[in-house]
Design a protein around this nucleic acid. Sequence first.
DNA 1: GCGGAATGTTAGACTTGCCTAACAATTAAG
DNA 2: CTTAATTGTTAGGCAAGTCTAACATTCCGC
Lengths: 224, 224
Amino acid sequence: MPVSDLSHAAQDYLKLIWNATEWSSTPITVSVMAERLGVRPSTASDGIKKLAKQGLVTHAPYGSIELTAEGREHAVAMVRRHRLLETFLVQVLGYGWDEVHDEAEILEHAVSDFLIARIDDHLGHPTRDPHGDPIPSADGKPHLPQGILLSDAGPESEVVITRISDDDPEMLRYFTELGLAPDVRLTVRERRPYTDVTTIRRQGSDHDADLGPVAAAAIWVVAG
Amino acid sequence: MPVSDLSHAAQDYLKLIWNATEWSSTPITVSVMAERLGVRPSTASDGIKKLAKQGLVTHAPYGSIELTAEGREHAVAMVRRHRLLETFLVQVLGYGWDEVHDEAEILEHAVSDFLIARIDDHLGHPTRDPHGDPIPSADGKPHLPQGILLSDAGPESEVVITRISDDDPEMLRYFTELGLAPDVRLTVRERRPYTDVTTIRRQGSDHDADLGPVAAAAIWVVAG
DNA sequence: GCGGAATGTTAGACTTGCCTAACAATTAAG
DNA sequence: CTTAATTGTTAGGCAAGTCTAACATTCCGC
């Protein structure tokens, strides 16, 4: 069954469960899902039960929520759609990287597999989206996220940004001001323990910038 | 209220009513609407009643169906979306003109006004879609369809194709084979009364082609 | 290891859009 | 001009997805 046969709601649920495990290993809960989807916990609980009945997730009452192989396949297909759409909107239609998330969130439910293939061709089979997130390939091959949170990087380390969470457009605009984007190299200067402020300097810049804990936890880096 | 606040169904109903009056003056009926929308007449009847309650159409039981000013505005907005999307798919993503209709039919419900504006910019504000249909402007200005059906053109007349109905992809592929497309010039050679076959010759071609009544009624032309 | 707080589930209701079946109105044929 | 066919409407149901309210379970602090 193609992913487009699932209801919009089912597509959203699966993608969210998958996303939650991409960059962290803490399993997702019903209330977190409800909050992210903008529905009541009762609605999310119900939805999960339906997905379980369809064999797309495993879930016993009060138990953990896990994707089955089939569920993961559909989730990855949705993530691929989302990230290709974001890349397309930025590269072809001149969107800012802070403007693409919501638009892609809607379009991903409407596009055909054919259109996604055309977009992929037109972009030359990109492997990362505008926020640095890896774009799963058409055959749903596992892709390997890597990197650590900037907030976990040791002081005096040299790092390269690999991805920036697109959850908060406001924060993306702030990062743009600071010149922070995927593939930008920077030095972690200091981390003040109590205030949890991370001081960084962008390569090529002549001054430091301070990031609060939320900002530093939205940026993933690798040593470099 | 923006057109995107309407339900998908309402958007479809309004666009269909508008489309029905663009190229012909016979008013649309409940059963024709139901058939075009792929629903039962009872469903269409119900839907129209709801639109009437919202002030988007006027309709008394068993009476005619007419758009109000507000309904027409929304309908035109949907037609604009549809035709810009079709144009974009052909010009930017390499779709064939026979492949765009269904895709646009779905996307038109999902795109934002912002995205439509970007597409319009990117295409340089086109005025006609791949089938020759006029693209309403952003301010919903009335646009003036013109032309007569090829099936109504007199024999020995020289005409230019202005539009070709995109209702039937199969027929579009046939027209592609014959080299028939918007802006193509041709001569009407003959119309045989009983079989209703129209014989034409494309400018530059060295042989005639015969069109059945359905095909000749899918092509609009102007004298030229 | 108890008890309250947090989290998750169930029950019942509402909305939208669709259906079938029965009925009403209009149209058209003879 | 009458009646049969066509067309349109209403009534009643169903499924999906949402809600609130009530209830169940689990977790955590003491």
